[in-house]
């Protein structure tokens, strides 16, 4: 039994795939943006000496990191509305992925914070900067440079995690692919094209991050 590849049906619906990919990117972008803010605050919490800040930050990170993301997605979408927290499909997924990425990014940021020599904070204090000014002008920018390589893989991971939105029928790339597959029965072609789109997009993301890394590299 030979299977003859025929992409014609997939190409006819290619626009839908691209729209799906666009939505995937938008989901990832929104979630990572919010997640970065959560992650940064959590990272400062994790490195704080104050137990009342450090403890909750640690609990948040371990709960989120020890729960499969698919479970989180389904929980937010199906269970939380029972407690009155009702969101649309897209909002619900972005919320979930933001909370999820916050925990992962917090760990990435924390490693970056620990790599900054304490003398820099003291130098900032000595010229009269407040702790907050030191964080925004010195620590955050330096941490950001330090973590770019690991940030890059985290971002790519999170982008790929948007495929889980298919589970709650968000019309992103994976969902669209499944739809076309069901409509055309071109199983191999549809999933092959979708995989290529993921690979292609991830490579672009990686290249962008490398460019940023080179651009921000500290001259030594």
């Amino acid at each position: 039994m030979g299977y003859t590849l025929n992409f014609a049906a997939v190409w006819r619906s290619f626009d839908d795939l691209l729209l799906g990919l666009g939505l995937s990117l938008a989901l990832a972008f929104g979630a990572i943006l919010i997640g970065a803010v959560i992650g940064l605050c959590t990272a400062f919490g994790l490195t704080s000496k104050n137990g009342f800040i450090k403890r909750p930050a640690g609990i948040y990170v371990s709960i989120i990191r020890n729960t499969p993301i698919l479970v989180l997605v389904l929980f937010t979408y199906f269970a939380l509305p029972q407690w009155g927290f009702r969101l649309g499909k897209i909002e619900s997924f972005v919320f979930t992925l933001a909370v999820y990425s916050g925990a992962y990014l917090a760990e990435v940021f924390r490693a970056g914070l620990l790599s900054i020599p304490p003398g820099l904070r003291e130098a900032g204090l000595a010229i009269g900067l407040t702790e907050m000014q030191i964080r925004t002008s010195i620590i955050a920018p330096l941490m950001f440079r330090n973590i770019l390589p690991s940030l890059s893989s985290t971002i790519i991971s999170l982008f790929k995690d948007t495929s889980l939105a298919a589970a709650i029928a968000v019309p992103e790339l994976t969902f669209e692919t499944r739809k076309i597959n069901v409509e055309t029965f071109r199983v191999i072609e549809t999933w092959m094209v979708a995989s290529c789109l993921y690979v292609f997009t991830c490579s672009i993301l990686a290249a962008l991050m490398r460019t940023l890394e080179r651009h921000l590299a500290l001259s030594r």
């Binding site: 020599p117 130098a123 900032g124 000595a126 010195i138 920018p141 440079r145 500290l218």
Partner: peptide
């Protein structure tokens, strides 16, 4: 204050 390790902001 000037420090033993200079502590310039490297970025």
């Amino acid at each position: 204050m000037a420090f033993q390790q200079f502590n310039l902001f490297p970025h």
